[in-house]
Design a protein around this nucleic acid. Structure first.
Lengths: 105, 105
DNA sequence: TGCATAATTGCACAACTATGCAATTATATC
DNA sequence: GATATAATTGCATAGTTGTGCAATTATGCA
């Protein structure tokens, strides 16, 4: 596995692997429409500045995307991209080995 | 989403989301048979004590399992369990929302 | 019993991270 | 322009994490 790709995958998982960030992801999960940051604050009991920073981390990893609407920013989950990345990792872990695919259950 | 479950999932992702630990996982991925810790040291250029600690973290999250063989410990990847957890998360992220399943592509 | 090897643990430390508060920026409305 | 609100940024801080080295434990073998 390529070092750069490994680092990228690790960063992706690390971004998801923090309680408040994962809570934000779940919160965005529950709502079909975009949510602004203030609204998202309610789901985790931390300062709005903290939420802002967490959303920034999630955006950097392409886990969420945002649009500017007036003075608000509305965030939405990149559902397909995130799900695809997780599934690809699952496939690698389940299927790749020296003998090429069979993991001997 | 239940707080305890969220924390557990976050811990799982955090365990995977570190470069050297993910490298160990990939290394175990490549090999069908169990590997001892010394062997695994080769895949990441850190002290054996560090590898030992990383493997402990991975074992705590049930990402790897080990057997004692003489004075060695041989580690193997819990392929199915890890893959299943990742896929379940992918499913939640892709499908769950207020309107019950459709995520409006 | 003595020695060698595998692995873990104690300790110290540097780097990173999450957090809250205050200040700042950006934008809408009056 | 003045004011209010949404969001971000600077700063300080406490807590966590990854790391290496040395010591220790555990096991196998002569």
């Amino acid at each position: 596995m390529d070092v750069k790709q490994t680092q990228k995958t690790a960063d992706f998982l690390k971004a998801l692997g923090e309680f408040n960030r994962l809570s934000l992801v779940y919160e965005l999960c529950r709502c079909e429409s975009s949510q602004n940051a203030m609204c998202l604050c309610d789901c985790c009991s931390v300062d709005s500045s903290v939420v802002s920073r967490h959303l920034k981390v999630l955006a950097e990893r392409d886990i969420v995307a945002f649009d500017k609407v007036g003075r608000e920013r509305t965030y939405r989950l990149n559902r397909n991209e995130v799900a695809t990345q997780l599934r690809e990792l699952a496939d690698v872990i389940e299927n790749s080995n020296c003998n090429g695919g069979n993991h001997g259950v």
